[in-house]
Amino acid sequence: MQFDSKRNNGVTIVSVKGRMDAVTTPEIDGKLTGLIDGGERRLVVDLAGLDYISSAGLRSLLATAKRLKAEQGDMVFANLEGHVTEVFKISGFYALFKVYASVDVALGQLGK
């Protein structure tokens, strides 16, 4: 698992690579919580290179999004790949979240 974040004009771009399963998600969840605790309110989550996600990963993303919404923030996704795309579909996450083809498109759309 690899987690990176960088700021771009008031938006935080988070990159998660590898796996978001029951073993790896607590660490990722802690980092997401840390970003919000640090005042970040607008997140683009770049899932390029995320090979696998289970309900543990989805729960963390959902909890993060709920918290951001409560704080008048927003979270969108970019670059979903094969297995992750299918899991988002089955879970109804496409109806809950905005999903974009690239980080650049997401940055252009965030908050509109």
Partner: peptide, 22 residues
């Protein structure tokens, strides 16, 4: 229930859905 919006969406139950669907 997969039709609720973000505020009402429950965080549990998806694992069991995957078992049934996949």
């Amino acid at each position: 229930d997969l039709t609720t919006d973000l505020s009402d969406r429950k965080v549990g139950g998806l694992g069991l859905l995957f078992i049934k669907r996949l």
